[in-house]
Computed example of a mutant assay.
Amino acid sequence: MDGEILIETHPHSAWGGAVTAQMYIPSVRSHVWQELTDYSQWVKFFPDLTHSEVLSSIPGKGLAKKGGKRLYQVAKKAFFLFSAQVEIYLKTIEVTQQNIQFRMERGTFKDFSADLALQDYDRGTLLTYSVKATPTIPVPSALIQEAMKFDLPSNMKQMRRVICGS
């Protein structure tokens, strides 16, 4: 439960940031998947997320049978002397117990996407979470990346605590 959260930042647009975080969760992949796809619970994972709601399900089609959901999420974030509220409508594409892709349909970002991947590791699950985002207000990408790099480890540790029930 005290394992490190590995963080790597990546370039993403002049005003955006991209980060990949990876952590070990001492729980089997089927349980981790069940917790992660309970999207209303994401407010427990991420303290800045104030609302997370499934709007509809998207049935799987064709041979891949990838299904998903449409989500609505709201977050509040304080920066130095001001605070901001953002909202986003997301489409998820789920490959059962393997990965979830989050793609912005509309919201208060110029762009947003995230990918979450699960794989068996030792007696638990290795979770990889990659996020790319560009806010609508111009903020230098280095500042965005630093904020993501600062916030994501504590958020991921909180996610692990919730998933493991501790």
Rank of each mutant, 00 (worst) to 15 (best):
L152D: 02
M1F: 09
W15S: 06
N99E: 15
Q98A: 12
T136R: 15
R29A: 05
S13T: 14
A78D: 14
S40K: 12
V139Y: 13
Q41S: 10
I88H: 06
T92E: 06
V139F: 01
T136V: 12
I7S: 01
Y121P: 00
S154P: 02
L126H: 08
D122H: 15
K77D: 02
G62C: 00
E105D: 10
A147G: 10
G62T: 07
K77C: 10
R123L: 15
Q41P: 01
L116R: 05
L81R: 14
F150P: 04
K157W: 06
G3D: 12
V95A: 14
V32E: 00
A64M: 06
Q119F: 04
I88Y: 07
K149D: 03
Y24E: 06
T9P: 08
D38Y: 08
R106N: 12
S57Q: 13
F150Q: 15
T37P: 04
H10G: 05
K76Y: 07
E146A: 07
Q41I: 05
G68D: 04
D38R: 05
M104E: 15
G3E: 11
T96D: 12
F80A: 13
M1Q: 01
F80K: 04
Y39H: 13
A117R: 15
A14M: 11
E87L: 03
Q41W: 09
E53L: 14
P153H: 05
N155F: 06
G16Q: 09
T134D: 11
T108V: 11
T136E: 13
P26F: 03
Q34W: 04
R70I: 15
F102V: 12
E4G: 06
S30H: 02
K110D: 11
H12L: 09
K77E: 12
K69Y: 09
D2T: 08
R160N: 01
T136S: 13
G3K: 11
I7C: 14
D48F: 07
L118M: 03
V162E: 06
S57V: 07
L152I: 09
G17D: 01
P153V: 02
S56H: 06
V74H: 09
W15G: 04
K76W: 03
D38K: 04
L71C: 09
I137H: 07
V95N: 15
G67S: 12
H12D: 08
C164S: 07
R29H: 02
A75T: 11
Q98V: 07
R106G: 06
V32T: 00
